[in-house]
Design a protein around this nucleic acid. Structure first.
Lengths: 210, 210
DNA sequence: GTTTAATTGAACGATAGCGTTCAGTAACAT
DNA sequence: ATGTTACTGAACGCTATCGTTCAATTAAAC
């Protein structure tokens, strides 16, 4: 059986691959799909345009490869939901903190913006993004809340709905502001006191009254 | 004093103006700023390209005129906050309902998407949009909540913060889903029962305990 | 009817990107 | 060293758009 090993060849330069994807990301994010220039990507990546077309067959293809790769990266950066043995309030605060840190990072904001725009022309990428990011986070959160309901630290209710409420009450108007102003200043607008207030309100309506 | 009335002239055809703006909106929304074609706009509006350049001096200019006009329209469609003399719960439900109707309308979703993408190149339009839409809604909501706090139907608290909590708890994950899937099916996903649940949770933590 | 301004259609130069071709070079496996 | 493959740079045809110009036409105000 052939292991696929060819007898004599020059191996693909992985560094170039990575450089192309990374520069593609920058280019697409800055200019949008239509205005992005393959030649600029090639120049920035120190690569010949032909090389790009050898690896990815078209602009379309390069774009979706880049989105796929970004989604993979994003999955690795989702808010930390490790279950330390702490009080419920601590646990929720920790989640709120890391969720807001995640959502307010410039990379995520820019990615979100670009995807929102491109989804008109590439609906399947909207799905891809939703599954890699928001929905994943939602199900993690739902699971955590369901756990707490079982443990009796949260009152019984629809955990999915509770997750949405928690997520929403923490975000408030923040994400809207972020999406339409300078991404580089977004993270600074996260105030711990506001997170605590949101979590406490959530607890007021969901905590078991003992 | 000259009233500005010129002696003999052919008046601007307002219908053409409107057609241009309306077609510009469609074109920019569908293709994004960079890929939008002035000539296509002209063709769709049954207008000469020269006419467009006579009215708006450049593509940039046309784009911001269009955004300005859209923002004006949007202001007229903001959620209804008329104060009928009803129960607090009814009042909040009414707000929730009309807010979600507003936010889930395909026009608003598409506008939101496009602005989010374009704000990278036109930061000042992000401000324009925020002031015309989200911030306006936030201050209306804040005012309503402050009123209710004064009336004693809501417990005393930071009304601004409470507004954010109400807004967030109602939205949940909905807006994220909307932004990345088919805008034309968004409105159908609004479930009255979910709105009621959200409002009730809000009330659980904000209503005065009598 | 005369004047004034809005509007048109067609053409133009300039720019820019895509996607392809080709001949040549570089890097690796054997 | 030899063969195979990755990669390069330059050029090409093609298409599209912008923004401008021009002479000609149209519509209202006077």
């Amino acid at each position: 059986m052939d292991t696929g090993k060819r007898l004599a060849h020059r191996p693909v330069d992985q560094a170039k691959q990575d450089a192309i994807l990374s520069c593609a990301r920058a280019e697409f994010f800055e200019h949008g799909y239509a205005a992005a220039s393959i030649e600029r990507i090639a120049a920035n990546a120190n690569v010949s345009k032909v090389t790009i077309y050898n690896h990815f067959q078209s602009k379309e293809n390069l774009f979706s490869a880049m989105v796929g790769s970004e989604c993979r990266v994003m999955r690795g950066q989702l808010p930390d939901m490790s279950k330390a043995e702490t009080s419920l309030r601590e646990e929720l605060l920790h989640f709120a903190q890391s969720m807001m840190e995640f959502l307010s990072s410039p990379d995520i904001i820019r990615f979100d913006r670009r995807m929102a725009a491109e989804v008109e022309r590439h609906p399947e990428m909207g799905e891809l993004f939703l599954n890699a990011g928001p929905r994943r986070m939602k199900s993690m959160l739902t699971e955590m809340i369901a756990d707490e309901m079982e443990r009796g630290r949260l009152a019984n209710a629809d955990p999915q709905e509770a997750a949405a409420h928690l997520y929403g009450i923490i975000k408030g108007f923040a994400d809207v502001e972020w999406r339409f102003s300078d991404p580089d200043t977004a993270a600074a607008s996260v105030k711990p006191a506001a997170l605590a207030a949101a979590v406490d309100r959530f607890l007021l309506s969901y905590q078991t009254s003992k």
